[in-house]
Design a protein around this nucleic acid. Sequence first.
DNA 1: ACCTGACCTTGCGGATTTCGCAGAACTGGT
DNA 2: ACCAGTTCTGCGAAATCCGCAAGGTCAGGT
Lengths: 173, 173
Amino acid sequence: MHSEAVASRSADQRDSSRESRNGGSPQLDAVSLAIIQQLQEDGRRPYAAIGKAVGLSEAAVRQRVQKLLDQGVMQIVAVTDPLTVGFRRQAMVGINAEGDVEKIADALTDMSEVEYVVMTAGSFDILAEIVCEDDDHLLDVINKRIRALPGVRSTESFVYLKLKKQTYMWGTR
Amino acid sequence: MHSEAVASRSADQRDSSRESRNGGSPQLDAVSLAIIQQLQEDGRRPYAAIGKAVGLSEAAVRQRVQKLLDQGVMQIVAVTDPLTVGFRRQAMVGINAEGDVEKIADALTDMSEVEYVVMTAGSFDILAEIVCEDDDHLLDVINKRIRALPGVRSTESFVYLKLKKQTYMWGTR
DNA sequence: ACCTGACCTTGCGGATTTCGCAGAACTGGT
DNA sequence: ACCAGTTCTGCGAAATCCGCAAGGTCAGGT
């Protein structure tokens, strides 16, 4: 059987006691969490199936998914190993900056070759992942564009040799 | 009109001259590339729409997508900002290792808190992204589990302060 | 030349899913 | 108690998915 979730409907799904636990920006209740979990397993899973799993009607799931998408809380996309798809050079770049670090992060965000930007604590202020087609391109991005940003004190690059794992399944463990 | 893609069908879609350009493992031709691109924009886009965009029938798209999924070339999933979803502590861990580095990478891959593992060239041999619920958990993973792995010489952690960008859109630029 | 295998197309129906909308239910504020 | 805003449910209608069958085309091998 796989319909237990529907059981205690009247017991209130969006459990406000639990919502407060999460300090994130747009509060996510337990049901949305469950929906996201479903879509992390299969981004194309039908709304009806998700509804059955989380104890909601098909229409309700649809609305919530749409809202989560609109709010930018999640996105449903195809992900691949870039190396498989023809991007042979990738690197993580650690950056030391001075001044307005966030502004630099924003500048990196605007670069199409930069796929991932995160501000960190530690010996780097920012970590940025670069995806390029070849060495020339990578060199160009790192030396000409990133190092040229005002406030960038120094950078250190880690060229990817082999991607071993790439998951999107927190909560599903 | 929006049906130009269908025009030169007989001119052969799977253009073998271009396929050879890519050195990846399972050869991806231009059409599959285009399909992936479509699904990177919207993982739920209907097959018919994709077909119209890449110049293939609905059935053909369906078959290819299924194969790409089966082969593990891509996956269609929901991705989120973990911080929004209740995981408050994340970090990138740089690892210096001796001996069989790949074996260590495999060990990391087996840990559920490790979401991303990549072998690199540079002052770290491995970069691993850790996703945890709180500080205790993070500390435990880094100090007790990762540092305990045989062959791990040293580690350096970069705790995430703010995720600025996260894309999956190479090729779509 | 012939055959085989891989892949695509067209067409089809039935099951399933998506989508929009109207009405009911619940929440929080006054 | 009432009202406004939000969320959920229930339903048809339209669109999509899915499996299947009958060719067509092309590349490679014999």
